[in-house]
Design a protein around this nucleic acid. Structure first.
Lengths: 93, 93
DNA sequence: CGGGATCCGCGTGGATACTG
DNA sequence: CAGTATCCACGCGGATCCCG
């Protein structure tokens, strides 16, 4: 389900509301367009993310979490919190 | 932190209390000894799991979650719950 | 029983170039 | 802007053999 190391990150950055491809690409540190696209497609196929295409020039796309996807947010947040504690501990000790 | 696809599973099976290597190997479906060992080592180095060696014959080892590790349990549970919902949906539709 | 050593395959990710 | 195509590197996992 959360396949790929970047999946949680993508969900994290989508938790603030709909984002466009370029926004995600710019906001998620060091992710490549290829991987972002791949993760987005997979999360979409899993029913965690929805893609909305707005046909215009310049073309734009909007990604958003589904209801199911939103249920993952608290879990990812708390895992991230533990991660932060780990980093702090490793620095101080 | 949760590197490796098996890490969440290992934490899951440790959430019920301390387990020995063989117990984990037997209870976690289809995990190989090599990978179990690798994940255990990594989780240990991250401060999520502790290893206790009980010197006797036959030799035995006990693995347990640290306090930090236990903080991950609710998150993993809720993620697993979403996973279950996804499977149910995919079967019915 | 509780692992480590080795070999090997595959998925995931990085970089770069290209397109509608 | 929003991707896709291609090539390559490496981490992770599976299987098997072996050891204290």
């Amino acid at each position: 389900m959360l396949r790929g190391a970047w999946a949680p990150n993508v969900i994290w950055y989508l938790s603030g509301g709909p984002r466009r491809f370029g926004e995600l690409r710019h906001d998620i540190p060091r992710i490549s367009a290829r991987v972002l696209s791949a993760r987005l497609r997979e999360l979409e196929s899993r029913g965690i993310v929805v893609r909305r295409l707005i046909d215009s020039s310049p073309p734009s796309a909007e990604y958003d979490l589904t209801e199911l996807g939103r249920e993952l947010i608290p879990a990812i947040k708390s895992i991230a919190a533990v991660g932060t504690k780990l980093k702090l501990r490793n620095v101080s000790c």
